[in-house]
Design a protein around this nucleic acid. Sequence first.
DNA 1: TTAACTTACTAAATCGGTTTAGTTTATTTT
DNA 2: AAAATAAACTAAACCGATTTAGTAAGTTAA
Lengths: 343, 343
Amino acid sequence: MKKLYLKDVARELNVSKTAVSLVLNGKGDENKISYDTQQKIINFAKKHNYIPNQLARGLSRGKSETIGLIIPNISDTFYSKVAGVIERKAKEKGYTVLFSSSYEDPKTEGELILSMLNRQVDGLIIASTQQNKKEIEFLKKEKFPFVLFDRYYPENETDYVIVDNFYGTKKVTEHLLNLGRKKVGFITLKPGLEPIAQRLMGYKEALKAHNLTSKETYVKEIGREEYFSEVEKAIIDLTAREQAVDAIVFSTHYLASQGLRVLKKLNLKVPDDVAIVSFDELSAFDIVEPPVTSVVQPVNEIGYSVIEILLNKIGSTVKTEFQTRVLKTKLEIRSSCGSFLST
Amino acid sequence: MKKLYLKDVARELNVSKTAVSLVLNGKGDENKISYDTQQKIINFAKKHNYIPNQLARGLSRGKSETIGLIIPNISDTFYSKVAGVIERKAKEKGYTVLFSSSYEDPKTEGELILSMLNRQVDGLIIASTQQNKKEIEFLKKEKFPFVLFDRYYPENETDYVIVDNFYGTKKVTEHLLNLGRKKVGFITLKPGLEPIAQRLMGYKEALKAHNLTSKETYVKEIGREEYFSEVEKAIIDLTAREQAVDAIVFSTHYLASQGLRVLKKLNLKVPDDVAIVSFDELSAFDIVEPPVTSVVQPVNEIGYSVIEILLNKIGSTVKTEFQTRVLKTKLEIRSSCGSFLST
DNA sequence: TTAACTTACTAAATCGGTTTAGTTTATTTT
DNA sequence: AAAATAAACTAAACCGATTTAGTAAGTTAA
C-alpha cells in the first residue's frame, strides 16, 4: 500500500494531472470534464484512498486551510474552553488549528505570530499580551486576517471580541453593596491588561455610585508569578487591620480559588466574616465551600464570534469595517455573598 | 515592506538561491561557502527579517516540523494540561503542534488521523477512542512515528504512556476499606476504554484482598452523554436501598464533581453518610466541600514522556523497541473519606 | 606544464500539488 | 464548405523552498 500521489492517479487512469486535480476540487463541471471521466476519477480516488498533500496544495494555492491560535495558556480553563469551541467551529468549515501558548511573554508572542505567518496560516486568533503593537500594526498593514479576543489594543483599530469587563465587575460590586457590605476589597493582577483595567474601573465605578470613595488600600495588585503567596499577603493585609474589609472581589478565577484557600487557612468564615466574588468562573465553583458567586463569561459565544468574524475576513477580499463585539457577562449568584446584612 | 523570498535575498546579494539556502540552514561550512559570503547572507537575512515559507520548506524536505495531537477533548482539564506540557516541550525542540479533539467519536478520530497525515505532520500523539485499530495498524505498517497516551490498544504493540490505573483505584479503595468502610460503590463510565476497565479491576481487586466480594449492584456504569442525570440516578440507587453504600469511588473527575453536587442535593453528608474518592483530579478539589481525596495523575511526567518518546522516534531511522511507560499515580488524601470509623 | 585537487560557488531538478493558456476534435452557424 | 463555437481535454508554468550534480578558477603535485 504505497502512498498515492496525484500523478499516480492520473497515470493509472490515463488522464492528465490537471483533470484529476480539477475534478477532485469540484471544478470538473465548470471546466467541462465529461461526466464519465469525472466519475472514473472520483471513484478511483475514493477506492484507493487518495488524499492530497496539504503542504503542496497550500504552497500552490497560497493558503493552508489552517488557522493559528495564540493564547496565554492552553492549560487555563477559560482559554481551553474557548479553544475547544474555536476548534470545533473551525473544523466544521474545513480548517485545522495550530495553537501555541505565549505564557504572557510578549517576545514569545511576537515570535509565535511570525512563526505562524511563515507557516502560512490563513488567519490568526490572538488573546494578546498587549505588548506587541508593532506586530499588530504589521498584520493590519499586510491586510492579514486576524481577530483578537479577551485582550485587545484599545488604541489600535482591529477586529476583536471581548466581554463587558467594566459592567461585569460594576454589577457584581453593586451586588455586594446592595447586600449591605460596606468595605469591599479588590484583589487583582498588576496592571497592563485591558480587561484587568476595565474590571478595576467597574469596581471603582460601583463604589462611586454608592457614594463610597474607593480607598487605594483596598485594592491589591498581584504579580502573576508568585500569586499564591501574594494573594495570601493581600488577604491578611485586607482583613487583619483597623478597617477590615467585609467583602473581596477577585478579578480572575485563579485569584478567587487561591483566595478561598487562604481564607480557609486563616479561619475566616465566608460569607459571614467576608463575602467573596469572582470574575470568571471555574466549573467547580458551585461545589466549593461556599459556592462562589461569579461573573461568568459567555465562552461559547466568544468562540463563535471569533471564528465567524475571522472566516468572514478570510473569505472576502473587499476591505470591510472592523468588527468589534462586546459580549455580556452573566452574574451567577451563589452563597459566597450571603444574604442581606442587617448590621 | 513586501514579503521577502529566498530568491529576493539571492538577487539582492548577487549569489545563488543555493548559497542562501545552505547558509541559512547552517550548512555553509560543510559546503565550503566562504566566511565573507556567509556573513553577508546571514546579516542581510537578519536585517530584512527573512523567514522561509514552511510549506515550501516542508514540501521539499518531506517534513513539516509539526506534530499532531489528537485528544478526546481539549476543554477537559486533564487533556488541556497534558496538551500544555506537550506544546511547551515541542516548541523547545522547534516543533509546532496541530491539535484536534475527537469528542470520543472513532470516525472523527480516524478522519483526524488521515487529515494530520496528509498535512504532513512529522509525528502523532493520540489519546485514542480505542476504536481505530485499523488506522493504528496502518500507522505501524507505514512506520509512521506515533505515541499513544492515556488510552492504548492492549492487543497491539505500540509506544504508549499511561498511568497505573489498576493500582491507583486499588490503593484508593483499600484506603477506604482501611478506614472501616464496608460497602464501597463504584461509579464509572460504560466499558470500552482500557483505563476505565483497569480502574474497575483495581477496585474489585481491593475488595477481594479484603475478602469482600464485589457486588455487581454496587457498580454503576454511566453513559457519557447524559452523565449529569445518570450520576444522580446511580447515587440514589446506591444510597436509598436496604444495603446502602458507605463510600463511593468515582472513576473520573467529572463524575466525582457531579457526584458531589448530587450528594449535596440529596442532603447526604460527606464523609459521614458516605465517603467519596475520585480518580483524577480537578484543581479545585482542595477547596470543594469536603475536599476530595483523589488519585492524581502525573500530568507533567505524562507530557514529558510522550514528547520524549515521539521525538526519539522521529529522530531515528533505525527501528527501535516499542517504548511503553506506566507512570505512578499519587494518592492525595483529603477529608472526603473522614478518618477511621469505629462503627 | 599538465593532471589532479580544492575552493567557492551555481543551474537545474525536485517536492506534489494548482492553474493558465492552449490544443484537438466535434458540432454549429452562415 | 468555410468560419465560428463548443466540448473535452492537456502541457507546462508555478508556488518557494531544498538538494544533487555540476562548473570555473585557483592550487598543488608529479
